Simulated scan of single mutants.
Amino acid sequence: MSSSPTNAAGPNLRHLARNAYGRLLLVDRHGQTHENVTPVRAHPLSAPDEGIAFVGTDGHELAWIDHIDQLPEDQRTLLREEFAGRELMPTVRQLISVSTFSTPSEWTVETDRGPTRFILKSEEDIRRLGEGRLLIASSHGLPFMVPDRFALDRASRRLLERFL
Rank of each mutant, 00 (worst) to 15 (best):
101 F>Y: 11
38 T>F: 06
42 A>N: 12
108 T>C: 11
21 Y>G: 03
44 P>K: 09
161 E>W: 06
92 V>T: 00
68 I>S: 11
102 S>R: 15
57 T>P: 01
137 A>C: 03
151 A>V: 05
150 F>L: 13
152 L>V: 07
114 G>A: 09
154 R>T: 09
153 D>Y: 09
11 P>T: 07
33 T>Q: 14
62 L>K: 12
161 E>R: 09
26 L>D: 00
95 L>D: 00
54 F>A: 12
106 E>F: 03
161 E>L: 06
78 L>Y: 09
65 I>L: 14
118 F>S: 04
107 W>H: 06
46 S>I: 08
103 T>N: 05
47 A>Q: 10
111 T>Q: 04
5 P>S: 15
139 S>G: 15
33 T>P: 04
60 H>A: 13
3 S>L: 11
102 S>E: 15
34 H>C: 08
23 R>K: 15
121 K>D: 10
48 P>T: 13
93 R>V: 02
7 N>C: 06
3 S>A: 05
32 Q>V: 11
95 L>A: 11
154 R>V: 13
30 H>N: 12
1 M>G: 14
95 L>V: 15
1 M>L: 11
128 R>H: 15
84 A>P: 00
5 P>R: 15
54 F>S: 11
62 L>T: 08
31 G>P: 05
28 D>K: 12
121 K>Y: 01
131 E>P: 00
49 D>W: 02
139 S>R: 10
144 F>E: 03
31 G>I: 07
55 V>T: 14
74 D>Y: 07
72 P>T: 07
91 T>D: 01
58 D>W: 00
27 V>L: 08
60 H>E: 12
104 P>N: 06
129 L>Y: 15
158 R>G: 03
147 P>S: 05
140 H>M: 11
80 R>D: 07
25 L>G: 01
161 E>C: 01
129 L>T: 10
128 R>Q: 13
154 R>M: 11
8 A>W: 04
143 P>K: 05
109 V>E: 02
17 A>K: 12
60 H>S: 13
148 D>C: 13
54 F>V: 04
47 A>R: 08
106 E>C: 02
119 I>Y: 06
76 R>A: 08
42 A>W: 09
24 L>V: 07
98 V>I: 02
87 E>D: 03
22 G>Q: 07
104 P>V: 08
103 T>K: 10
106 E>W: 01
64 W>R: 09
144 F>I: 01
53 A>I: 00
26 L>P: 08
134 L>F: 12
95 L>F: 14
24 L>R: 08
48 P>S: 11
112 D>K: 10
88 L>D: 12
30 H>L: 10
99 S>K: 03
118 F>W: 06
99 S>V: 05
87 E>L: 05
150 F>A: 13
5 P>I: 02
15 H>A: 13
146 V>G: 06
130 G>C: 02
76 R>M: 12
129 L>D: 10
